[in-house]
């Protein structure tokens, strides 16, 4: 697959995030902002990796039990017990729980409108992780779609986080 292309897409978004950060640097409270970034950026990176990693593990666990699309209702109990016995499902649930906690933690000090555009990168990382860990073939068309979704999520996050009871700030 076109790996250099993938990385250039990733690079473009990293650049975008850094532009976002450098904008913040123009604030008066430079040291305060720097200090916040020092704990915010690693946590954002962790949540961008852990959330998708959780989904990849769930996918791995579910692939190992065979397709549910052809299963009958009676088969569901043995399938469910096999899923619960698989280590991957618990690994996935653990990753998603840590991801959720980190996300909540981030939101206690960082603005939602700052965190959400950054986490739109998770659509890039889920695609890369399913390529590297699950061996899924990612067609250029799918990469295009994922990039467009990222951009859309980025746009959604750049709007005002609270609109109830306040005049619209379009």
């Amino acid at each position: 697959m076109a790996i250099p292309e993938d990385f250039s897409v990733h690079g473009a978004f990293v650049l975008l995030i850094f532009l976002l950060f450098s904008n913040n640097g123009r604030n008066e409270h430079v040291t305060h902002t720097r200090r916040l970034q020092l704990k915010t950026i690693p946590l954002i990176l962790i949540s961008i990796i852990l959330g998708p990693l959780g989904n990849v593990f769930l996918g791995k666990a579910m692939k190992s039990v065979g397709s549910l699309s052809s299963a009958r209702t009676l088969d569901l109990v043995p399938i469910a017990s096999r899923v619960l016995m698989s280590g991957y499902i618990w690994l996935g649930i653990f990753c998603l729980l840590v991801f959720f906690t980190v996300h909540m933690l981030l939101l206690t000090w960082a603005d939602y409108s700052y965190v959400q555009p950054a986490t739109s990168l998770s659509y890039v990382s889920i695609t890369m992780l399913s390529y590297f860990l699950l061996g899924e073939v990612i067609s250029p068309l799918r990469w295009l779609g994922v990039t467009v979704i990222c951009f859309g999520v980025f746009l959604v996050g750049r709007t005002s986080p609270s609109t109830t009871g306040a005049p619209e700030r379009a």
Binding site: G59, S67, S69
Partner: peptide, 9 residues
């Protein structure tokens, strides 16, 4: 359920 027969990506 859908992850059992469709790709994560």
């Amino acid at each position: 359920a859908i992850l059992s027969f469709q790709e994560v990506s």
